[in-house]
Write a protein that binds this DNA or RNA. Sequence first.
DNA 1: TTTAGGG
DNA 2: CCCTAAA
Length: 689
Amino acid sequence: MELHKRLDYGFIGYQVPYIPRATRSARGRGNIRKKSDSNEMCAFDLLTTVAGKLLLEGESTSNSSGKDQSAVVKDTTETVKEDADTPLKENHCNERCQEQGFFISQIVSEAPVVNHCLSKSTDMLSGPASVITSSNCSDKLGSAEQFINGERKTENRNCSTKVEHELSGCGDFSSCTLGAESKKQLKINLSNDATNKRAAICSSEFHDPWDRKRSMLVASDNTVKLSLSTDLDPFGSFPVIQNDVQLANKDDDEKSCGCTQPSTRNKAFMPAPRVGDWRMRKLQASKYWEVNPQSDDEGHVNVDNETRHVYQKRENVYTSERSQRDFPFKKRKLYYCNSFSNSDGGSSDGICSSPTKDLNRDASGYSLASSGARAAAGTSIPKGASASFRSNDSHVKLKIKSFRVPELFVEIPENATVGSLKRTVMEAVTAILGGGLRIGVVFQGKKVRDDSKTLFQAGISHDDKLDALGFTLEPSPSRASPPLGPEGHSRVLPCETPQPLTRCSPGSTIIHNGMQQETYNAFPDYSGTNLSNFIESDHDSAPSPPDASLEKNAADSRALVPVAAMDAEALAVVPMLKPKRCETVQRRIRRPFSVFEVEALVQAVEKLGTGRWRDVKMRAFDNAKHRTYVDLKDKWKTLVHTARISPQQRRGEPVPQELLDRVLIAHAYWSQQQARQQMKHQSETRLLL
DNA sequence: TTTAGGG
DNA sequence: CCCTAAA
C-alpha cells in the first residue's frame, strides 16, 4: 500500500463561504430573526430559518459541482490561479488554505456597526500563506458583487476588489467597509507565519483565535465562519460566538476537545463534548467501509462514505482513513468528528425524545457548561435574569459565526498536481454541500433534535446562553446514504482497513444505545447515603431524565436490529477472530470524576486499601452504576499519577491538593502493606520448602 | 468475576 | 476508558 507516497490531507472541516442572505423584503437584513415570540419559536423554526439562509449557499455550491473551482494557491512563493470557470455569483467569498489547510471562509459581519476590523496586519499577514481562493471570489470578482441581492452590488464590488488585492499581494489589510445598508464586511485573513497561524478574522472586536498550530497539510478548521448576525443591536449586545478552537495545549481527548473548552467564551459553540475517542473512531472508520449507514443523523459517517466514493473514482486520488499516528492532530479530528457521530457522546441521540424533557444531557466533563445548560435548558426554571430578559425582549438574537462541517479525509499522491488536488477537494466539498444540507442545532454541547421544542424549552432563549448555541451543517439524509454498491465495497476493501470490519454500524445513533442506557440508569434512586450524596452531584451531570430514556431505549432497540444484520454481513465478508457484539464495542462515555467522587474514592481506599476495588465500589459507589470497580481502580491510578506530577501538568477539573496528598499517603501506605503481605507469603512458602 | 497492568 | 491475562 505504499506504492507511492501519499499526502494525507485532513480536512477536518471547511470554512464554508457564506453570505447571509438579506431578507428579501424589507424584513430585515439577513438576520435570523423570528418575529414571533421566541418562546414560541420552535427549534424547527430556527432550523428552518437558518437553513433558509444557507440554501443559497448550498445551491451555488451544488451548481458548481463537477466544475473546477478556481483556486488560488498561494504557496510560499507563488500564486497560482487556475481553472476558474464557475462563477458562483452568490458565493462571493474567499477561501483560504492555510498551511495546506483548506478552508473556505468568509466572514461576514452583518452587523450595523463594523468598520474596524482587519487592521491587524502585522502579525497576521506576514508571510506567504497557502491560500485557496475559489472562483467565486478571486476570479470572478466582477460577478461576485451580484451576490444575493442587488442592493449590495456596489458595496461588494469594493470589497471584492480589496480582497483580490489582498490575495494577490498579501499586503496589509486594513479594513473593508461595506455599504451602508447591510454593512457587510468581508474579512480575509492570510495568516502565514508558520508559527503564528491564525486566521485573523476579526469581526469588529472579535479576533478569531484559530490556532493553527498544526503541521502543514492540515486543514483544521471545520467551522464555517459566518455571521448571521441578526439585529440592529451593536455587537456587544449579544454574545459572540467565537470560534475559539483552542486546541493548543490541552489534551483534547482529556478534557476539552477544542470545543469543549474553547475558552470560556463559548464552550459549547463547538459542541462535541468530547465523547469521541480515537479508538472508537478507529473502529468506526473501518466500519464505514463496509457498512452502508443509513444513519441520517450522523452526517459525517455518510459523508465519509460518499467522499470515499468520490475519490475512488479517480485514479490516484482517493480518500481513506488516514492512519491515526500519521496525524498530529488526531485528537482534534476526533473532536470534530464528534459533532457528528458522537457528538454528544451519546447525548445527542435521543436527547430530545421527550419533547418536554430537559435535553440537557451532559457528557460529563462538560461540567461547567453543563451546569449552565441545566440552568438554561429544559425543565429547569429560568433564572430571574433570563426571565426578565425575556420580558423585555422575547426574541432570540443569534449570531451564527460558523457552522460545523463534516470532516473529510483526502489522500492524494504526492506527485499529484495542484490542480487535481483542487479538484479532489472540490469534489469532496461538493459531495457534501451539493447534496443538500441540513442544519443541526447544538446547544450547550448537545444536539438539539427535537424540532418541536421551543427555543424557550431548549433554553436557547436567554441571551447569556446563546454563546453555547451552535449550528452544524449536515449532509441531508437523502444524500447521506449514498448507494454504496457492491463494487463500492470491493473497491474499498483493498484499500486497507486492516482492522477487522467491525462490529458496529457507523451510525452512532445506534451505537450510543447501550451507553445511553447505562447512563440513564446510572442513577436510579438515591437513598441518601453520605457517599451517595457525592455521587448525586454527578447525577446532575448525568445527561438526561429517566423517562426520556425509556422512550429512547425503545427506539434504539429497534435501531439495533439492522446493526446486527449488517454486522453479520460484515463478518461474512471478513471473518473476524473475535466477533463481538455491538454493544461491547461502544466505548463508554467519558465521565470525569468529580471532586466529590474523588473524595469518596479516596476515603474508601484509605479504609479498604488498593487491592479491593470491588469493595471500594460497593462502599463508595454502589449507587453509581456507571462506575465500575475497574473504573475506580483506574481512577486511583490516575489520581496517584496526578498527585505525583506538578500541578501545572495536571488537567481537568483540579483535584484539591489535600485530596491528592491523601492519595499519596494512602497509596504509600497500602503499597507498603501489600509489600509486607508479599514478603510474608514468600517467607512462609520458603519456610515450607 | 476480580485484580492488576498495559494500552 | 479499554482490553486482558491471571487469579
